[in-house]
Amino acid sequence: MTTLGTRGLGVSFDGHPILADVDLDVRGGELVALVGPNGAGKTTLLGVLSGDVDPTSGRVTLDDKPLASYAARELARQRAMQLQKQGLAFGFRVHEVVRMGRSPWHRTAREDDDDRVVAESMERADVTDLADRLYPTLSGGEQARTSFARLLAQETPVLLLDEPTAALDIRHQESLLAVARSAAEAGAAVVVVLHDLSLAAAYADRICVLSRGRVRANGTPADVLTSALLTEVYEHPVEVIAHDGNLLVVPVRVKGVVPWPAG
């Protein structure tokens, strides 16, 4: 069973602490949502988990081996990552971009699956119809779905997604997280950075709340998503409503707080 974990993790940029004392374990078979206000360190934590950001203190391990000891290609067979925004320098077509996810498996026996896996991944991310479009001409949401298809095509036991739903419409938000969920059920360890707490409640096995670079809470959605905790962390009154078996997280809206100066 794959395990990605951090112990006593700290990251500072330019002397400013971004993360401190983060202990987090993600095991194969579970989907963990990373949530928290802006600047809480979610993206940095995901960067550390992916091996992009070197921790200032503490350690990160993948299957009990230090993450830094993996070679680039070896690591690419273990974890895939979807960035918040994925640019592209040249006008590749969508199916070519998705196929880039297969490159860690070149010159291995699994290369034979390339065509099937690419087709299935595009189907799951709902980009089959876009297959021949030029990636730079797609909308933000379409680009995000293409990147998601590329991540799936990589077929790794660890999946890291940084705000994959930010640019998506409701239907694709739900279907993306449903696919991520089924990947977890098939044995993958999945970490998703999310802003929409109701989405996190619906799809995550576990929610890790970051606040000011520290883990404020880490547990099942029912344990973590409480009005008191969220109100404190987000510095804004938040209500949690149980509706039809789902937890709905809604900010309390005070009407007409500060009126615009007239004229």
């Binding site: 680039a72 690419a76 895939a80 990552m81 960035l83 994925q86 320098a89 490159s103 590329r150």
Partner: peptide, 21 residues
């Protein structure tokens, strides 16, 4: 040549798909 295709994704994403950038 094949690795340069992946570099079009940018340094980070190229590393994510296994390129020693």
């Amino acid at each position: 040549a094949p690795k340069l295709d992946l570099l079009a994704l940018g340094d980070r994403a190229a590393r994510h798909v296994g390129v020693d950038v």
